[in-house]
Amino acid sequence: MLRGHIRPAILIFLILTVITGILYPMFITWVAQAFFHSQANGSLIYRDGKPTGSALIGQQFDDPKYLWGRISATSTVPYNSASSAGSNLGPSNPALVNNLKARITVLRSSDPDNNLPIPVDLVTSSASGLDPHISRAAGYYQIRRIARTRGMPEEAIKHIIDRNTTGRLFGLMGESVVNVLKVNIDLDSHK
């Protein structure tokens, strides 16, 4: 009984490998490259003809003139897109509270007059470590700091944030979010 099954097992395994492991991904790659060239290659954003980032991958910002994103837990640098990682800190872990406190200190000291409560997504780390977005609340929280540093009116900053905000799908699914990298590229173009 055993021997009779070995030949079909090997051959069917090989044939299914060719179909699902070679033909199928090659076909999808062909369709992707032909019809969705930008998306299939990482949704890159170009500035002066050179790639400066991906619309879907966050970058680290800590200069007060830029909009800041989520905390990134990747190593050895934040937003290391060659090695995605979350913090995996449990809700009762003292290290989590310490991370929050450190971030709160930086936020408060860079914007001492701002006494608004800090939106939670601005002080917590994302799942991928590469989250390109923050909530609108987290975006608006930073308007005054950016406006002051850049000497631009607050209304202009708010306008740039709104311009780079995507709403919920059909107004229902997912969350409304601000793309941090796009906002910052937009800000730099207003020099």
Binding site: R70, V120, T124, S126, A127, H133, A138, E175
Partner: peptide
Amino acid sequence: FQPGGNMEGKEA
């Protein structure tokens, strides 16, 4: 303007 809640380890 925000989903709120426990956002540690979640994507915006």
